[in-house]
Simulated scan of single mutants.
Amino acid sequence: MKHSLLLLALTVALAACSKEAAPRVKTERPASTYVVGIPGGDSGNVYSGEIRARHETVLGFRIGGKIVARMVDAGTFVKEGQTLARIDASDTGLQESAATAQYRLAEEELKRHRELRDKGFVSQSALDAKENALKAAAAQAGLARNQAAYTNLLSDRAGVVSATLAEVGQVVSAGQPVVRVAQTGESEVAVAIPESRIASLKVGMPAEIELSAGGADAKRYTGRLRELSPAADPASRTYPARVLLNNGDANVALGMTARVRFGTAEKISGYLVPISAIFQQGEQAALWVVAQDRSVALRPVTIAAYRDDGALVSSGVVAGERIVSAGVHKLTAGDKIQIIDSGKTP
């Protein structure tokens, strides 16, 4: 009996030893990647902005009333003195008629009093009162004529209508914006500067402007910082600035998106990568570089500068290499990943 039990135990042990351990299957982790290829250029910062006219005027009626006609729409080119809109002139017309009638009455009264004064029937003070009444009536008639003229909204300069702010049938008050007119000629880019960069910018410093709509054939222009607000916007906590284009042309349309780069004297060569791609090992920065088989390897790099739009890598990678741009602390050397392309902009 003991011999049988020993034989059975030995058989079970040999069967267990003959089984090989099942290999551990590694799963490929999805990872956002970025293709190195954007030169850092210089250490200036890039800001997105909108093309605006150098001179822009918001126009409104000088009196209140109901808009009965609007002759222009956004994009309409207008001349100086051209009628843009009109409000109901019924009341102002009646006021003008009443003031004109009062003036004519005062004029006739003065004429009769002068004749009576020549004959000695009225005193000089009575004549003086009629003369003053005529002056007052003339002033009222002139005011009524002006009020009647204010029913037409005229353009004070040649330009293009950039926005219409009121519609036909709407009742507007005096001074309420109705039409915005941008003067043709000089153009500029309106940008917002963060608090961290305000000290590095000075009015008059050069800038490079690129129209974002251009794609690979993007148009580039030179400019200068014309205006920098000394006070931050209370909502965004950024400082409004205006960059004047030196060589604008027909390709620069109002409302277009533009990228502005302020240059500095310091030139640093290298490639721009997302800050989230940097893997810090003590004092050494590194990047996870993706191989052809989608495996990753950690490579030390040299960071020349940290900027608002990314980190400037001066050595360690070359253009065209793919790096992991997010989740770098979850990887180990040799891991294979599922590539998610995040584009070529940090």
Score class of each variant (00 low, 15 high):
R224E: 12
R226F: 07
E227G: 04
L228Y: 04
L228K: 10
S229I: 00
S229E: 00
S229C: 02
A232V: 01
A232I: 00
D233F: 01
D233A: 01
P234Y: 05
T238E: 10
T238L: 06
T238V: 05
Y239D: 02
A241G: 10
A241E: 04
R242Q: 08
R242D: 02
L245G: 05
L245M: 13
N246V: 10
N246G: 15
G248S: 15
A250G: 06
A250H: 06
A250C: 00
V252I: 12
V252C: 09
A253I: 04
L254I: 06
G255R: 00
M256P: 01
M256T: 03
A258G: 05
A258K: 00
R259G: 06
V260G: 06
V260I: 15
V260E: 10
V260A: 09
R261D: 10
A265E: 15
E266K: 15
E266G: 07
K267F: 06
K267G: 07
I268Y: 03
S269C: 01
Y271Q: 10
L272M: 15
V273F: 06
V273G: 01
P274E: 10
I275C: 02
S276E: 13
S276N: 13
A277H: 00
Q281C: 06
Q281P: 02
E283C: 04
E283Y: 11
Q284P: 02
Q284W: 10
A286S: 15
A286D: 04
A286G: 09
L287T: 08
L287H: 09
L287M: 08
L287R: 11
W288H: 07
V289W: 08
V289G: 05
V290G: 03
V290M: 11
Q292F: 05
Q292E: 14
D293L: 07
D293N: 14
R294H: 14
S295I: 07
V296G: 05
L298C: 08
